[in-house]
């Protein structure tokens, strides 16, 4: 087998691929007629190219479809940050349900809403205590009584009335009520805050789920 130069091999390769302009192609064909080594190489290359081209198309034995659960696929999903929010939303809904059941047994005047509305009266009540000179220690033992009196002054379901000064204008009663209010209100206020937070998360989860559905379906 005669050895050809790289230039001739490049020329033959381009010739066999139909990459040569007409004039150059004509020159190659003229050389092929007169140069047996070039002709033999051209024939070999043509056969090799044909053999390569006739290699069978191969089919994979298994599907190469990607699995949405594959870690690298999950990491690549554009809404991957929505998923934790959805989990948090589910948890928030559970919390809301538990709190809802708990609150069902709380009297209306001790509901989180009523206690929260009562809270703004605290600074005024503390001020009244200071002016009236009633010592905190003296007011403390009266907690239970004051609470019941305060409850009597605040009819059930009337949250605003519960927050208003007592009808008899007694500063002591007001002061007592004010000292009692924080301890009585603390658990319901926390419940209320928890309920609000859970509601907020659940709402965000709902928005996240809707966004995901839109992303998936908008093609």
């Amino acid at each position: 087998m005669a050895t050809l130069s790289d230039a001739d091999l490049d020329l033959l390769s381009a010739y066999l691929d139909g990459m040569l302009p007409a004039d150059e192609r004509a020159r190659v064909e003229q050389r092929l007629e007169h140069e047996p080594a070039l002709r033999a190489a051209c024939a070999d290359l043509r056969r090799i190219i044909t053999a390569l081209h006739e290699l069978p198309a191969l089919q994979p034995r298994r599907s190469l479809a990607v699995d949405a659960a594959h870690p690298r696929i999950r990491r690549a999903l554009p809404w991957r940050w929505l998923r934790p929010l959805q989990y948090a939303g589910s948890l928030a809904l559970v919390i809301m349900a538990v709190l809802g059941v708990t609150l069902a047994g709380v009297p209306a005047n001790q509901s989180p809403l009523a206690m929260n509305l009562a809270a703004p009266a605290l600074p005024a009540a503390e001020e009244a205590t200071a002016e009236g000179g009633a010592p905190f220690a003296a007011a403390a033992p009266a907690d239970d009584a004051a609470r019941s009196r305060s409850t009597e002054q605040a009819p059930a379901g009337d949250a605003v009335a519960g927050a208003a000064p007592p009808a008899d204008g007694s500063g002591e009663l007001l002061a007592g009520g004010a000292q009692v209010a924080p301890r009585a209100a603390d658990p319901p206020v926390m419940t209320h805050l928890g309920l609000g937070l859970a509601g907020l998360i659940a709402l965000a989860a709902l928005v996240a789920t809707t966004m995901r559905a839109i992303l998936v379906r908008s093609r």
């Binding site: 191969l58 089919q59 479809a65 990607v66």
Partner: peptide, 23 residues
Amino acid sequence: AAVRGDVESFNMLVRAHESRVYG
């Protein structure tokens, strides 16, 4: 659709090209 995260649409592309890629 696949850019937006639709895995099923991407798998349509996989089915269209898997033979050539595999080959």
